[in-house]
């Protein structure tokens, strides 16, 4: 099946980096492609390319300007972009399941979201937990993952007045995305539930449960099931 990658454009990003842009639209084939491209570049050109950071529709390539001129790097990248297959797959990487307690004190916006979407609370939970999400980007805090794409029926603009404090572990949605807050922070997303995921542990291997291109699925559980899961994780 032929499937076309968005054209790449190149932008300067300082004395030692180039940003490669693959259009401006979310594309479900990009996370897997960018993740594979990252591995490919770091393996093939370790003396020139020091770091590669993917996010949504772009990838930042940091290089040593003493080893390679920007123009030559761009030519090299144009070649290498062809070497990595661009496939119409969302079945890339690993799938991690996160248990979520929806609604109640853990999901203060569930009712409002259901009302705004013209759905029952149960329908919102089933839609949110009924599909896999891809990790499109990691950042904001170490390991924090931006997950997309949310089902059309659940897409809402951010809250007009952000909350002063959103608890760590809050499972939230806004526009096409869903995410789990890594720590207590202000936030403007709609909170549907709670999961005690640890996005980042420098002592663990791997340090993050997922990386860009991997997938996450939420599973609706009771408070008791969640407690059992937490105990299981601690062992």
């Amino acid at each position: 099946m032929s499937f076309k990658r968005p054209d790449a454009t190149f932008e300067l990003a300082g004395v030692n980096a180039i940003l490669v842009r693959f259009g401006n639209q979310l594309n479900s084939a990009l996370p897997a492609y960018l993740s594979a491209l990252r591995d490919h570049l770091l393996t093939r050109h370790p003396s020139i390319i020091s770091q590669v950071v993917p996010a949504y529709t772009t990838i930042l390539v940091e290089y040593d300007p003493r080893q390679c001129r920007m123009y030559d790097l761009q030519l090299l990248l144009e070649r290498e972009l062809q070497m990595v297959a661009f496939e119409n797959t969302t079945q890339y990487g690993k799938l991690v399941e996160l248990p979520v307690v929806y609604g109640g004190e853990h999901g203060p916006d569930l009712t409002a979201v259901a009302d705004a979407c013209g759905l029952s609370e149960q329908a919102v939970i089933e839609l949110h937990s009924g599909q896999d999400y891809q990790v499109y980007a990691q950042g904001f805090a170490p390991g924090f993952s931006y997950l997309a794409e949310l089902p059309q029926q659940l897409r809402l603009p951010r809250l007009s007045t952000p909350r002063q404090k959103v608890a760590a572990g809050s499972v939230a949605i806004a526009e096409q995305q869903t995410a789990v807050y890594p720590y207590d922070s202000p936030g403007g997303w709609h909170i549907l539930g709670y999961t005690p995921v640890t996005w980042f542990d420098p002592q663990a291997s791997p340090m993050t449960p997922v990386e860009v291109g991997d997938r996450v699925r939420f599973k609706a559980v009771t408070v008791q099931q969640l407690d059992a899961w937490v105990k299981e994780q601690a062992r």
């Binding site: 990003a13 300082g14 030692n16 980096a17 940003l19 842009r21 401006n24 979310l26 950071v53 993917p54 996010a55 949504y56 529709t57 772009t58 990838i59 930042l60 940091e62 499109y136 980007a137 950042g139 931006y146």
Partner: peptide, 10 residues
């Protein structure tokens, strides 16, 4: 725009 990687001194 979507968030994108920030290089030093952007």
């Amino acid at each position: 725009m979507y968030s994108e990687p920030l290089s030093y001194a952007a």
